[in-house]
Write a protein that binds this DNA or RNA. Structure first.
Length: 436
RNA sequence: GCGGAUAUGGUGAAGGGGUUAACACGGUGGAUUGUGGUUCCAUUAUGCUAGGGUUCGAAUCCCUAUAUCCGCCCCA
């Protein structure tokens, strides 16, 4: 029979069990920290009506969204978790308690050209806070605080949360009379980190920005010092109202970060942070691992004032951030930052010698499981060698061998695979060994 | 959407027109029928992305298609 090649689509990721265990550990860690800060779980549909998801839709979203028809219904796979959140909040407005804090860890889909660290299906771990009419700026500091604790717990080394404010950028460029070029300028200066100053300067020139303004932009971007010093010198650069408003917002956010006791070396004011979807209106964030800057931003987000305007007349400003976990995981793995995982799920493998002792073995298994021990049992009629090897290859640290002798004595031959030692013990002693 | 590169087993790969496709890892079975990780032995692609062409002969040369990878755009 002609076989079908068992392949998956490019841009889609699947892992082997040891990696999946590791991946799930990261998901569990992220979820735990999110919940510690009072964020509530949410799960929206993978597929939604295209008119809903594309209500705002700029060019890129429209190009990259997976869109199809089922009968006459125009459907799309969700492109991110923020737009579905806006829809959710709008449709459940009456039943939600504001400020509404939710997290969602789910897959999203983008039909892009796949390449390194870029997937067509990937996990996003979002937290967002939606206010009713208004949302205090303190929340703009709480978001990076949560992220700070997440990355602390993930143990990926030193990282920096880079913070900026769109109003500062827009206001500054408007003060130079560049209001029409803002989007392009933001896009270009965002490359600063990756491409360097020369490239940025050249592209700005190509964009038709005059030399004088480019110099002003670089003066602005080169503002240095501590956060306080930067803010102080920035204030003198322009009196533009939007610009000043953005700076005041940054001041509030940074002073709140101190109250949240986020260590100062873990965040910074970075004027080149412009990226993110175009729905961001105020504070924006990006996070990099200091030891691996080439990974780029592993977590970004910001404040969006008007995201629900397409669904409701209620004014529901929000702030949120997202960890691109699939990318983060694959790049950490590739860079060798994550150690090989030898942890298994099961703590012990029970091995019945033959089917006569299976009943006794299952009694032991149930006893262990009732006491919270993850227990696997081997049922294949193979040699002892294969049975032990199974545990060894899965990384299960202990084996409980059960034959006629053990049944007669109501005990288990408890073998430690790491040391090779073995002892004959009762199930109570077995439980004790496994709980420690 | 644009540009570049590459396609050999479960994996990493050698071979660049001559007949059994090297080597390594992994898998399976075995080396005193209740003991793994080391070692040893055996075994593991009638086939080199697919289709067509050149040739006495094609993984090897040519064409087409497809897939994958890497940039750009954009982004997690």
């Amino acid at each position: 029979m002609k076989k079908v090649e068992p392949r998956i689509l490019s841009g889609f990721m699947e892992l082997l069990p040891p990696d999946q265990i590791q991946f799930n550990w990261m998901v569990d860690t992220i979820r735990r920290v999110y919940e510690e800060y009072g964020f509530l779980p949410l799960d929206t549909p993978t597929i939604e009506l295209s008119e809903v998801l594309l209500a705002k839709a700029g060019g890129e979203t429209e190009k990259q969204i997976y869109r199809f028809f089922k009968g006459d219904t125009d459907l799309s796979l969700r492109f991110d978790l923020t737009v579905p959140l806006a829809r959710y909040v709008s449709s459940h407005y009456n039943d939600l308690i504001f400020p509404f804090k939710r997290y969602q860890i789910s897959k999203v889909f983008r039909g892009e050209r796949p390449q390194k660290g870029r997937f067509r299906e990937f996990y996003q771990c979002d937290i967002d806070i939606i206010g009713n009419e208004s949302l205090d700026l303190v929340y703009d500091a709480e978001i990076p605080t949560v992220i700070y604790h997440v990355f602390e717990e993930l143990q990926l080394g030193k990282f920096t949360i880079r913070i900026n404010n769109r109003k500062v950028l827009s206001g500054f460029f408007e003060s130079l009379g560049l209001e029409h070029e803002i989007t392009d300028i933001l896009r270009i200066i965002d490359k600063m980190d990756k491409m360097g100053e020369e490239v940025v300067k050249r592209e700005l020139l190509e964009q038709g920005i005059v030399e004088k303004n480019i110099d002003a932009i670089f003066t602005f971007l080169h503002t240095s010092g501590t956060v306080e010093e930067k803010l102080a010198s920035l204030k003198k650069l322009s009196n533009h109202p939007l610009y000043q408003e953005g700076l005041e917002e940054l001041e509030i956010v940074f002073s709140a970060l101190k109250e949240f006791q986020v260590k100062e070396e873990y965040y910074t004011l970075d004027l080149t942070i412009a990226r993110g979807l175009d729905y961001y209106t105020g504070t924006v964030y990006e996070t990099i691992l200091d030891d691996y800057p080439s990974l780029g931003s592993i977590c970004s987000g910001g404040r969006y004032e008007n995201l629900t305007e397409y669904y409701t007349d209620q004014h529901l400003p929000g702030i949120g951030i997202s960890i691109g976990l699939s990318r983060l995981y694959s790049q950490l793995k590739e860079a060798g930052i994550l150690k090989e995982n030898h942890e298994s799920i099961s703590s012990i493998l029970l091995v019945p010698m033959d089917k006569e002792v299976r009943g006794y073995t299952l009694d032991i298994a149930n006893y262990l499981r009732e006491n919270g021990i993850k227990t696997d049992v081997y049922y294949q009629e193979k040699g002892m060698k294969q049975k032990i090897k199974y545990a060894d290859r899965l990384g299960i640290p202990y084996v409980g061998v059960i034959g006629e002798e053990e049944v007669a004595e109501k005990k288990v031959a408890f073998k430690n695979l790491e040391t090779g030692t073995q002892e004959l013990i009762t199930k109570e002693e077995l439980l004790k060994r496994l709980t420690k």
